[in-house]
Design a protein around this nucleic acid. Structure first.
Lengths: 236, 236
DNA sequence: ACAAAAGTGTTGACAATACACCCATGT
DNA sequence: ACATGGGTGTATTGTCAACACTTTTGT
């Protein structure tokens, strides 16, 4: 499958061997930001962990390849996905010259379960503060992805892609605290986020919590669309 | 020269034919933001304008290739240069599958003059509001570069790379107005930028202007370094 | 004198921050 | 009763935007 210039084999699943895709997949669980890593089962890097990735087919766009690979790994489509940049040190890949195009993805942990197969023998979530040494330049890609996420989350409401459909304001705040590595004031956060009129207050409350149940909210992208059309700007 | 897998010919200037580099070069002249375009002299796209670019050598990093190509075109090194992202639609390049890695560069017009040769027969500055139809997906790359510049200029003091060494506060403001496409208040801009204590006031004034001469300032990157170390943040 | 741009000062509206305090609920 | 988080209120401080005004210099 990783086969250079062998022409169109079978259908059109032949790949280009000069560029790959690597994806930093973020998840949020129990107040902790995590990244999905896969263990490589073959070759020199056997046993080491790395970012999930793969090869780009000759007839698909780079973005499509990223979506396809993400789907093959998770079974999901409609995942939030954005390109980071190309990583192109000449010796970053030991066997030959490969430029990789980095992506980052955000997914709701409730939706997720790993699919079998793939080029990895195992997959596991790692806490953002507990990332091991990764293969190739994957630590660099991961760090770049985190910085991008931190910058992005202040400018657009993408954080909701990491939360369940229904969430409390405190969960949302803790998400921001975790991503940005800062502490926030509960009261001021409430005022700020509610003032944007971006959230839909539901007629539901938390269940089975050992304290006063909080109101649940959801992020309504219709509202967001309407607000942006009016010149609204999500600034945090 | 564009030759696949022909091994190490001559020195090590052989290139990879699967990825290229294209660069959006911004300049600022007379209050107008401009982009440097080159005219293609050969092949199907003869006569059409496009972004300057070129091929990546087998033994150089992508960033190095971008710097090298920029140097070959302008004769300058130490140009401000940053990667945009990879552009990878399968049919973006008509002859074969090529993924291009976009960059943007900022340069001082006073430093600049075009070098001969290169893969382009001619080079010319185009006003940002007067860009023609470009080859391939270069309009898309240019638009992406402009958006990046707009976002970046609000967060880091890179705008100075477009101005002469010595400039007036009004020139600086007009640069921001032009890049962001907005109008600003002279008084408020002064207060804001001076309050950052980022600029070095010189003991010089404008010459040969038909009105009251303005004080000249320069951007001192030493000051910027010191400030950033203290946790300073350039926010506009 | 006038034009044109440099440069200063004042104001009111609004947003960010810090912090005090009450409410609801499970153990 | 108390621990835990939910939720409200307020006072202070600082920032932003609008705009009126004075100063300097060439023609």
């Amino acid at each position: 499958m990783v086969n250079k210039e062998s022409g169109e084999r079978m259908e059109d699943t032949s790949v280009m061997d000069a560029f790959s895709i690597d994806c930093v997949i973020f998840g949020f669980d129990n107040g902790i930001l995590e990244v999905l890593l896969v263990q490589h089962g073959e070759g020199i890097s056997k046993g080491k962990w790395g970012l999930p990735g793969g090869w780009i087919r000759k007839k698909e766009s780079v973005d499509n390849a990223a979506h396809r690979l993400l789907g093959e790994l998770t079974g999901l489509d409609n995942i939030y996905l954005e390109q980071l940049k190309a990583f192109g040190e000449p010796d970053r890949f030991p066997l030959r010259r490969v430029i990789t195009i980095g992506y980052y993805a955000l997914l709701k942990r409730e939706d997720f379960n790993v699919k079998a197969g793939f080029t990895a023998s195992d997959a596991k979530w790692y806490k953002i503060n507990d990332i091991p040494d990764l293969i190739y330049d994957h630590n660099e890609i991961l760090a770049f992805g985190l910085k991008k996420l931190q910058a992005r989350v202040l400018k657009t409401p993408i954080g909701f892609n990491l939360l369940p459909e229904k969430f409390t304001l405190l969960q949302l705040m803790q998400l921001y605290e975790e991503i940005l590595g800062i502490e926030m004031d509960k009261s001021n956060f409430r005022r700020k986020i509610l003032h944007m009129k971006l959230l839909l207050a539901l007629d539901e409350k938390q269940q089975d919590v050992s304290h006063r149940a909080a109101k649940l909210y959801k992020f309504d992208s219709d509202i967001y669309e309407k607000l942006t059309q009016k010149g609204f700007n999500f600034e945090f």
